[in-house]
């Protein structure tokens, strides 16, 4: 069985039918890039995977934890699914280290000493071991986003969701964040990312999914389908963004 299984997923915002039956299987170690126009439903799809958006119909199973027609243990699901946001969303009243330690100590009841070791380890992984005691507003955007990645990693997620994590960054800060993601991918982390970085999706991803009008319109190996798109919609999209 796949690590993430999505079957017949539907989602409405009022009368707006945003996701119209998504079927998706993600294997361990997959690096998946979700692309599509704004409003296509790609961000909504990503957010349903850790329960930030409810599911109207369909099934989502992550590593044995199931959400069926919107019912299920969301907190159990979220312990397996980490998320990194476009706007970082670090907790401004806590230092980088405290940001990372919060969920392990509060949710998993990890001892403080042990949580500190975890925090040091994940901050080292994102190259910020010297920023343990810095507050978010003392860090650059790129550093803040790397702390946010570390914060998600500290919960030892099975899969990490990235929602346009470089879109709010100044251009010169994009690469330091992408380098961290690339390293995670190389270490075998399962990643699902909504991204506008086509080159990154092609170079690092092993699967590309093009969402169009709430459906998976085309998917496959990034290099193949970006070079030779089968549908005119994907061809138009790649022409517009690349």
């Amino acid at each position: 069985m796949s690590l993430v299984n999505i079957a017949g997923l539907h989602k409405h915002f009022g009368t707006n039918h945003v996701l119209k039956g998504i079927d998706l299987a993600v294997e361990e170690g997959d690096v998946i890039a979700l692309i599509g126009r704004s409003g296509s439903g790609k961000s909504t799809l990503l957010r349903t995977i850790n329960g930030l958006e409810s599911i109207d119909k369909g099934e989502l199973v992550v590593d044995g934890t199931a959400v069926h027609d919107g019912k299920g243990d969301l907190r159990a699901l979220r312990q397996k699914v980490g998320m990194v946001f476009q706007q970082f969303n670090l907790f401004p009243h806590l230092t980088a280290g405290q940001n990372v330690m919060l969920a392990p100590t509060v949710v998993k009841k990890t001892a403080k000493r042990e949580a500190e070791d975890i925090a040091k380890e994940v901050l080292l992984k994102v190259g910020l071991s010297d920023k343990f005691d810095s507050y978010p507003d003392q860090l650059s955007g790129g550093q803040q986003q790397r702390v946010a990645i570390a914060r998600a990693l500290a919960m030892r997620p099975k899969v990490l969701l990235c929602d346009e994590i470089t879109s709010a960054l100044d251009p010169e800060l994009v690469n330091e964040v992408l380098a961290v993601v690339q390293q995670l991918a190389a270490e075998g982390m399962t990643l699902i990312m909504v991204t506008h970085e086509m080159r990154f999706a092609r170079d690092v991803g092993n699967k590309l999914i093009f969402i169009h009008h709430g459906r998976i319109h085309e998917s496959g190996d990034p290099k193949t389908i970006l070079t030779n798109p089968e549908t005119p919609e994907l061809a138009n999209f790649t022409r517009a963004v690349m």
């Binding site: 930030l52 979220r78 998320m83 919060l102 969920a103």
Partner: peptide, 10 residues
Amino acid sequence: QWEASASLAL
């Protein structure tokens, strides 16, 4: 802030 803390299973 709510979303980030929710996504961390708080």
